[in-house]
Design a protein around this nucleic acid. Structure first.
Lengths: 327, 327
DNA sequence: TTAATAATTGCAATCGATTGCTATAATTAT
DNA sequence: ATAATTATAGCAATCGATTGCAATTATTAA
């Protein structure tokens, strides 16, 4: 069913139907009502694809998420897509896959769909492949990168200063008497690298020993296992910072199981202030990277950029410590 | 940049470019290479909208999720969209909003985008508004409803027999000596109603008292608060079934805080075998509704339905108990 | 050497909308 | 009653692709 079918039934031309559909002036009320009635009777809905073709505007925004199963990412994507819908835009939410090549591939797919803007959520997009894909296929449309940065003139960014966050955590632990502060990392991402860097700087500043577990599975089990590894290597550890909360949840569980007191023997700080940190037992202290605020900034920039294709902004938000039962 | 621009630069017609783009036979290798080179030099990507217009096929599938922040929903959506991508389809993932009207509205939006199929994830879609919207605007394309059922000839469904699951939980608790078994519900959804129904049947069968808390906030705090309410009303409660795991996590926390032994004094069973149930302390026993299996069935049906527009299937999967530390 | 066949490529219509311009009918002014 | 103006509605081109059919050229057969 097309506007021609509607036109025929209503005894008018397709132009008239189109004008009714778009509330254009200069249509007789009777004609308009008649057309509206036929549209309603036939459950007709306009093809956005055809409309987009002539308008050169798809009203679609691509949201690329590095791991859609990540609570924070999805929360950000959720906020953005809600706002988009309210403004008449439709969002194509995609999970970008593991490899850099596949991530770049998704950029190309969204370019083919001619999205009006692109939002990247997740630091793992920060790689040459994606940067190139954006430079090649998305150079004409606004891009907002949440949690990462590209040196491209039309790409806005919103990042948490994770280096600062981790430094704050070390600082807090130190000021409460901890001297053997460890860092347990899950995987190698630009975001985690910043955390490690912050940790190293803060540790070095205070002449403390560096206890780093560079990688482990991204799960409670992984956190438990890494904590076990850490203690085997450095039994005198008296504080642990985890690169993500879920590791801390598993870690605290393990430490309790082997009879350690938390925070008596060992203090624990996770990262991200995730739901896990709130419900874990004991409740996990955490570095709050203000992901909510990040997302909020992200869609605010997005909205401005959609209106004004040349709008670009770079925003940094400062993390803060949330102290609960593990410190 | 369009195929005409490419054609001009390559000194051929647009038809030729199109044939190269689609790997059609009957093009001289030299011509093909030349065209490919120009395409590459210009970072050209085909407009899927224009392509979809003539092919009457958008290669897009709509995935409507009732709450994208729900870990299970998003996991299902993730699995489906991964498979779609592998098969050359693009998925439009949308969060459908609270009200039934807004949910129906989203169906219409996706219809306008001319998706090739629609996946509904979440029992809350089971309402007249959405059913009507589908009957009106999506009557020609396959629809797969995960976790709910519509009496429409072209709508497939995949559901967990939650009634059975809750009955099993009661049965288990009863056979382990519990006689004051309560049910705590978060919100009023078709899915939860089935759980309550199963609870009531199983309770009645055994002539036990019905302890029901009909609603509470969908969070750990909500679960704690509801558990407190339950005990105020029925201090003799010796087992609780929660409509979702997160309530049980909050509940167990509260019970521990007031000095109850778990499972000594009170046994706890959550629902859905979510990550929360695995990491909570103590680890929560749960009714596993096999959401993973559900999603797997869902995309299998989806793939068949995309190939054969008339394919319809109704699948029921049986939940099972996962026993951990709270029973 | 000429006819027949095969290999390439282009023309033009089409998909489902939108819109500038023109044509016609209805009003109002003179 | 005629001219000028306004209100409506349609024609046809356009957006960026795809494809059946025709046209041209190259190749092979007779």
């Amino acid at each position: 069913m097309t506007i021609y079918d509607i036109a025929k039934e209503a005894g008018v031309s397709a132009s008239t139907v189109s004008r009714v559909l778009n509330n254009r002036p200069g249509i007789n009320k009777e004609t308009r009502d008649k057309v509206l009635q036929i549209i309603d009777e036939n459950n007709f809905s306009v093809s956005e694809a055809a409309r987009g073709l002539v308008n050169k505007n798809t009203n679609m925004v691509g949201i690329l998420v590095s791991d859609i199963r990540n609570q924070h990412h999805i929360e950000g994507a959720y906020m953005i897509s809600q706002h988009l819908i309210e403004h008449g835009y439709c969002s194509i939410l995609m999970n970008a896959g593991e490899s850099n090549e596949s991530k770049a591939q998704y950029v190309k797919i969204l370019a083919s769909r001619r999205v009006n803007a692109l939002v990247l959520i997740g630091s793992t997009f920060q790689c040459a492949e994606v940067e190139n894909a954006i430079a090649m296929f998305m150079s004409k449309i606004p891009v907002i990168f949440q949690n990462g940065y590209f040196d491209l003139p039309h790409v806005s960014s919103v990042v948490a200063d994770e280096l600062f966050g981790t430094m704050e955590a070390v600082s807090y632990l130190y000021s409460h008497g901890r001297r053997k502060i460890a860092f347990i990392n899950n995987n190698d991402t630009p975001s985690n690298n910043k955390k490690i860097k912050g940790y190293k700087i803060a540790i070095e500043e205070r002449n403390l020993p560096e206890y780093i577990i560079p990688s482990c599975a991204d799960s409670a089990e992984g956190g438990a296992e890494a904590t076990e590894r850490l203690l085997a290597e450095h039994p005198d550890t008296d504080a642990i910072i985890y690169s993500v909360d879920i590791l801390g949840v598993g870690g605290s569980r393990y430490l309790l199981d082997i009879g350690k007191k938390i925070p008596g023997d060992i203090a624990l700080i996770g990262t991200d202030n995730s739901p896990y940190s709130k419900i874990s037992n004991p409740r996990l202290s955490t570095i709050d990277n203000k992901l909510g605020e990040l997302s909020k900034n992200c869609y605010e920039i997005l909205m401005k950029a959609i209106k004004d294709r040349n709008y670009v902004e770079h925003k940094v938000v400062l993390p803060s410590l949330v102290l609960r039962e593990t410190t």
